[in-house]
């Protein structure tokens, strides 16, 4: 088992402006860009929206290759949507293969969708790659805090995210171990039809759930022993600090994005 490739969009420590920015700034700006991406459908607008993304990647110092690797898991979906658009959309025929025909409209929409998805993935990846999981959850908690009054459990969500991030490697390791242990008892996960394979997962899933519940139980006691009692009155080792840099970036990027949306 090799889980190394699962770490797409994983945090790459660094000291760049992108790393220094408050997570809230990065989240808001990328959210803004993503919204505009889906509102406009003008090629020029995409080109203009790509500018801040490319700029962010350049500033971050994260190897471009690594950023683009986050596109890999989506390659199949992109190709599929492109092909579907190309051949299914109405429009003037470009060429035909057998009974199916590619259209100019389809080509245009196909390209638009692929570009949209690409920019979306790049914009989110560069944020997650320059934001530590802690800063990320902190930022999320703070951004959602105003909604707490409407009953949204912002602190609990953030805590859940932290714990999930903390335990993902542990549970992956455990899955690997349980799989091997059952394989040592002759279990076969690779052959047979879907029904048979699904059934073969039971010897992995049951122990995994049992273990996850045990861990949750023990963790809850350990947290209680360390005086955890929810988000109220809690301080943080690192308080998020909204700096001048953040303000500048937020204003410039915000104005730019809005301008693109309005103008095109």
């Amino acid at each position: 088992m090799n889980f190394a490739n699962a770490a797409v969009g994983q945090y790459m420590p660094g000291e760049s402006l992108m790393h220094r920015l408050d997570p809230r700034t990065k989240m808001l700006v990328s959210l803004g860009i993503i919204i505009v991406l889906f509102v406009v459908s003008n090629p020029l607008a995409y080109a203009l929206l790509a500018v801040p993304i490319v700029l962010a990647i350049a500033i971050s110092g994260v190897p471009v290759k690594l950023v683009f690797r986050s596109l890999r898991p989506l390659t199949f979906i992109m190709v599929l949507t492109f092909v579907l658009h190309l051949f299914m959309d109405p429009g003037e025929a470009l060429f035909s293969i057998g009974r199916i025909t590619a259209t100019d409209q389809g080509l245009r929409l196909g390209i638009v969708t692929v570009v949209r998805l690409t920019l979306l993935v790049l914009a989110t990846s560069i944020v997650t790659m320059t934001t530590s999981p802690i800063a990320f959850t902190d930022g999320l908690e703070r951004l959602l805090a105003p909604f707490a009054r409407l009953g949204l459990p912002a602190h609990e969500l953030a805590m859940m995210m932290t714990i999930a991030l903390r335990f993902i490697p542990t549970l992956l390791e455990e899955t690997d171990k349980i799989m091997k242990a059952q394989m040592a008892r002759g279990a076969d996960f690779e052959s047979g039809n879907i029904a048979k394979r699904a059934k073969a997962m039971i010897p992995i899933l049951v122990p995994l759930f049992v273990s996850a519940f045990r861990r949750a139980d023990e963790l809850a006691v350990a947290m209680e022993a360390r005086c955890y009692r929810g988000g109220e009155g809690r301080t943080r080792l690192r308080e998020l600090a909204f700096s001048g840099e953040d303000l500048a970036v937020l204003i410039v990027a915000g104005a730019y994005t809005v301008a693109v949306a309005v103008a095109l």
Binding site: S132, P133, I134, T162, I163, L165, R166, T170, R214, R215, E218, L219, V221, A222, M223, A225, R226
Partner: peptide, 14 residues
């Protein structure tokens, strides 16, 4: 304060 047996199940943060 209290420290438990399983080191994995008492560390909360990343």
């Amino acid at each position: 304060g209290m420290v438990f047996q399983n080191p994995d199940n008492q560390i909360v943060a990343t």
